[in-house]
Nucleic acid binder design. Structure first.
Lengths: 254, 254
DNA sequence: CGCATTCTGCCCGGTTCCGTACTGAAACTT
DNA sequence: AAGTTTCAGTACGGAACCGGGCAGAATGCG
């Protein structure tokens, strides 16, 4: 695990996490002195299922993949993704003290802002605005999980793949996404060679270009059409509930 | 919608909801005067996706199915189940004001304890014990969703079916479960006739007996073996986190 | 009781995806 | 530059499921 950087006490302007930046300044100020920036590399393990949650992470880059451990088939399968728009470790706010999933950093090396789990829980207990903001994100994440269920039930591999590519793309700043077939396999629950074939079909559609270890997004609209309504709903809910926490009436307008 | 019963103000001994009964008496006392018992029939719609959440329900019988609306294929697909062990309407506690899914009553007619959503939110804001108990249930429900994703990715129809039957069985008091092929279809995301075939395979294994509109559980162990580790984890977490809220050290023992 | 409705069983060709295994290409190591 | 490791492409028979449709059985209703 590559941990670099030692900044401590992060100001609002310096925070690269969208959820934190959406907080009202008064709420952010509570966290600010306790945030610490740490650098991680691709495939670093941020947490392991069953271990106590001591730290909560707010990504500034990269993608934290939530992987449910399974005994059969692949050793684990993706059930969610979190990038700069959110945080991982929320079970600590829900009254659990252990990680329900493995969490690994994916796609690109990046920094995460971390904070002691007990401290964040205590702050969230005291401050309703902070608590609501964090819980809203958790809620959006569960909506996303619902759509993942739907997608895995009714869509063939390449349509599910289109959805995951969009989820990655939304959380990264480049059209070029580092993602091997093996990683796709853990999101799609298929053989590695079915990934190859599905990816070729997306290439034939000119939706993406695939290189060794990378996928380049060429046509988001095509990907979105393939994903159908398994993509978009959670994203709209995120905007409605979180994007402008500073404008308390935004919800009613939506 | 069949709404009968007019009891108002439910005592702890009269509450048929396991989550409520697990609450410390002081926390339950806050809710007690505001709970109202209402009777519903099978297939009654408790809520519709997109509508404002005005009421939160604690089932005492029957099963509340959470159905995600989809444009394609079947019009909706099951993403979760809640029986007497929990409640529905939790988005109101997570800072959302709208139902993310349709909610329908399944399996058997039953009563639900209902409470005004704004009032419950306010009570949960004030009382940390109550809030934690409710959030723990929400958390277990999301763990269950994670396993639903896993199951739909790696298991064939009859193994997923075995899992859903167990989830129903846990929430009902009889081995006889009212469930049509069409309802299975919404949980499994397959053609109705694939349900017929999967059910026949479970019958051939002597795991269940199937009659018109009903499934009778014959061998839970066989069903559990088929479900593999997609069944059991969420249930253990429920026990660890909720079953003895009155014994605050229970978590550490697990 | 007779009729309409709901639910279940079955059939067929066609497609997707599986399990397994082998090959070649790219990238990293020293 | 050579060797090792990681990734990607391909093949092939077989199983799981699909889409659609039809027939029969159980149930509910007038």
């Amino acid at each position: 695990m590559t941990v670099g950087g030692t900044d401590r006490g992060i100001g609002l302007e310096q925070a690269g996490n969208v959820l934190l930046r959406a907080l009202p300044p008064s709420a952010f100020a509570l966290l600010s002195p306790h945030l610490e920036r740490a650098a991680f590399s691709v495939d670093d393990v941020l947490a392991e299922a069953g271990e106590p949650i001591t730290t909560i992470f707010f990504p500034e880059g990269g993608i934290a993949a939530l992987l449910d451990p399974v005994e059969e088939g692949p050793r684990r399968l993706a059930v969610g993704l979190v990038g700069r728009e959110g945080f991982v470790g929320w079970p600590a706010l829900m009254g659990d003290d252990r990680w329900p999933h493995d969490v690994m950093l994916r796609a690109e090396a990046g920094t995460l802002l971390r904070i002691d789990a007990a401290r964040l829980s205590a702050l969230a207990e005291e401050n309703e605005v902070l608590r609501t903001a964090l819980l809203r994100f958790v809620h959006v994440a569960t909506i996303q999980m619902g759509r993942t269920i739907v997608s895995s039930l009714i869509h063939p591999v390449e349509r599910r793949m289109a959805r995951w590519i969009l989820l990655y793309h939304d959380r990264l700043s480049s059209d070029e996404i580092c993602l091997t077939h093996e990683e796709f396999r853990l999101m799609l629950g298929v053989r590695r060679s079915s990934v190859t074939e599905a990816l070729h079909r997306l290439e034939a559609d000119h939706a993406v270009r695939a290189l060794r270890g990378r996928v380049i997004v060429r046509d988001r609209d095509k990907l979105a059409a393939l994903a159908g309504d398994t993509y978009g709903h959670a994203e709209r809910e995120y905007r409605r509930l979180i994007a402008d926490l500073n404008e308390p009436d935004a919800r009613r307008r939506a």
